[in-house]
Design a protein around this nucleic acid. Structure first.
Length: 423
RNA sequence: GGAGAGAUGGCAGAGUGGUCGAAUGCGGCGGUCUCGAAAACCGUUGUUCGUCGUAAGAUGGACCGGGGGUUCGAAUCCCCCUCUCUCCGCCA
């Protein structure tokens, strides 16, 4: 959520910058400015009313104690009038505030000034390509066929026990999952991220604070009986650790990593994009989260980007990094890098990580602030990224490393898997 | 699932319906003392929204889990909700 004072001070700039995200903000901004000034006007009146009521109440108290009942009763008559006005005003204030807030949450985050305008994925900027794209043998097959061939991922049994998008990993497939999770966590810890095990289910407040609610409700699995949501990413519980907090400035940056299963309804997805491991309802991911000082967040973004690139190099996967254009960026992000791995049998780039700086957009809803010395609390910046999401990594590993003897495990991973070959 | 207790400032913990944003202790910050530190002593110590001000600040409002109500006046009384804790039951 954007801060109201920024909108109040530079409405024109807000509109222009949101246009980069192909978002037409004129009407909303106008409405917000109007509601904001109404809010302040009403609040001023209400405050004056309450001030008068308060002072009369005090007078009455004094009069009662000195036994001047009649005078007290005269004053009571006046407070009755004030009371009606106060009630009206505070109802009006509540309504205005709610409407203002409801409108405010509709505005996406401002893209960083360096973000190019663009319609969609085709306008993203490739900032780095790394690794060699393997030349596969004639008879190379996509990962869903390899999964069956080696008996490591069982999609059909997943359908039986749950439904499509919930595969069962078996044998070396399951072992590979566990190896990747440990590999990613160990790397993150070595890089200064504090390992965390958050709940996989969150309450409404948390889902709201990180922006899943109110608008992306349909993307999450909901436990109606307890009104809890299955997390779509560890970002939600991990970032919420810091909800409603004012931290000391010298404790920044706060760095956390967490493994979690992620649950996504993926309503509306269909077709060949969902084949095999490409898009699942439940998947595993290791997430990295940082809370930083506003002045340092863009250095941090680069650092996180490089960190993820390092992981992909260790896995010996060909990848590219794209800087998303305005049109392809998420609602809450100010700057996003996507990391895409080349899956050689599918001949496709698969997104395996997304690293974003949200600046104060999330912190504002989270009420996550820091204080430098004695100064006023100030909103922190939040960043997060996948490091990494497993299914597409597995897809690429299987496809790119297929040989006549079996699937070769990258060197860095062998200590974790305990085997060099899936055969 | 059953029974009970509770929710107050960073923490602990008081608070006959009026002068309570809230005692006290701890912690934090500043100072005195000291070569320095500890101890002791003194002072200070929340968030948020208006208005005025370039600012420092001044001033008014709100906030004692959340929401309603009673009252001239609510941390204090009433109702609803949420959460936490204890005991019993069940159980990884």
């Amino acid at each position: 959520m954007l801060q109201i004072n920024i909108i109040r001070e530079n409405p024109k700039e807000i509109i222009d910058r949101l246009a980069i995200k192909n978002f037409k903000a004129e009407v909303l901004v106008e409405k917000i400015i109007l509601l904001d000034s109404k809010r302040r006007e009403v609040q001023g009146k209400l405050d004056n009313n309450l001030a008068e009521s308060n002072s009369i109440a005090k007078e009455i108290g004094v009069l009662f104690q000195s036994g001047k009942k009649e005078e007290a009763n005269t004053l009571k008559a006046r407070t009755a009038e004030l009371k009606t006005i106060t009630k009206e005003l505070s109802e009006s204030l509540q309504l205005t505030e709610k409407e203002l807030n409801d409108t405010l949450v509709l505005l996406p985050n401002l893209p960083h000034p360096s973000i190019p305008k663009g319609k969609g994925a085709e306008d993203n900027l490739v900032v780095l390509e790394d690794g060699l794209i393997p030349q596969l043998a004639e008879n190379a097959v996509p990962h869903w066929d390899l999964a069956i061939k080696y008996g490591i991922i069982d999609f059909e049994t997943g359908v039986k026990i749950t439904g499509a998008g919930f595969p069962v990993y078996k044998g070396k497939g399951a072992r590979l999952q566990r190896a990747l999770i440990n590999f990613f966590l160990d790397n993150a810890v070595e890089n200064g991220y504090a390992e965390t095990q958050p709940p996989f289910v969150v309450n409404e407040d948390s889902a709201y604070a990180t922006g899943q609610l109110p608008d992306k409700e349909g993307q999450m699995y909901h436990c109606g009986l307890d009104n809890l949501y299955l997390i779509p990413t560890a970002e939600v519980p991990v970032t919420n650790i810091y909800r409603d907090m004012i931290v000391r400035g010298d404790t920044l940056p706060l760095k956390n990593t967490a493994y979690s299963a992620c649950f996504r309804r993926e309503a509306g997805s269909y077709g060949k994009d969902v084949r095999g491991l490409n898009r699942l309802h439940q998947f595993d991911k290791v997430e990295i989260v940082q809370i930083t000082h506003p002045e340092k967040s863009y250095n941090t973004l680069e650092e996180m980007k490089d960190y993820v690139a390092g992981l992909l190099r260790k896995l010996e996967l060909p990848f590219r990094i794209v800087k998303l254009c305005g049109g392809d960026m998420s609602f809450a992000s100010a700057w996003t890098y996507d990391m895409e791995v080349f899956s050689a049998a599918q001949q496709k780039w698969l997104e395996v990580s997304s690293v974003s700086n949200f600046e104060t957009f999330q912190a504002n809803r989270l009420k996550l602030r820091f204080r430098d010395g004695e100064s006023k609390p100030q909103l922190a910046h939040t960043l997060n990224g996948s490091a990494l999401a497993l299914p597409r990594i597995v897809a690429a590993l299987l496809e790119n490393n297929q040989t006549a003897e079996g699937i070769r495990i990258p060197k860095a991973l062998i200590p974790y898997t305990g085997f060099e070959l899936i055969n």
